[in-house]
Amino acid sequence: MGYKLNFSVIWKNLPLLLKGAWLTVEVSTGAILVAILVGIVMGVAKTSRHQFLRFPAAWYVEAFRNTPLLIQIFLIYFGLPQIGLKLSPFMSGFAALVLYTGAYNTEVVRAGLEAIPKGQIEAARSLGFTEIQTIRYVIVPQAFRISLPALSNNFIALLKNSSLVSVIGMVELTFIGNDLTAWTFRAFEVYGAVTVLYLALVFSLSWILAIIERRIRLLI
């Protein structure tokens, strides 16, 4: 075989690859923040006493969790323009990541809210707290603490899933990897390096999130 491994292509293009990794971090962090907001709003709606809130939230979760993210990306980027809503590759990819992860976050928030023992609410009400005060001081801090590990997992899944937006031309680590392969023909080295970079991102993110979890546990 004529192929000789040549890793110099990686060293030469390392700044570009690192830039791709940084873009992946930026996109994922932005998307998780919005997706947590989505999760809180929809999660509260899903535990609501009112059917007209519960019902749409439940269907949002089921629709986005039970279809592939790739199809959602294609539907938003290629499909929506046909009904008059044209979004840039960045906006399409970002929206798909937020909606997909938001559905998973909704379930996490719902479970967090439901995990709080009834006795906690009774204790708060028996001390004279209003409903709002009970939510603010007793339910939210506990639900947040309960939800944090699962939200961290969703963040890490999101970081990996963000690789899919490369297929519609949103620039991040995978896109840059494909690009680099296309003009260097060094698929093994480039995809190897990109894989290592993803692994490094996932490990550092898990590590940082574990520290944040511990801090927050101490804070509230």
Partner: peptide, 17 residues
């Protein structure tokens, strides 16, 4: 809530926060 603040209750399962 005003009335409840005048009545203390202690539960079997403590229910501390």
């Amino acid at each position: 809530n005003k009335v409840r603040a005048e009545i203390g209750i202690v539960f079997q399962s403590f229910n501390l926060f």
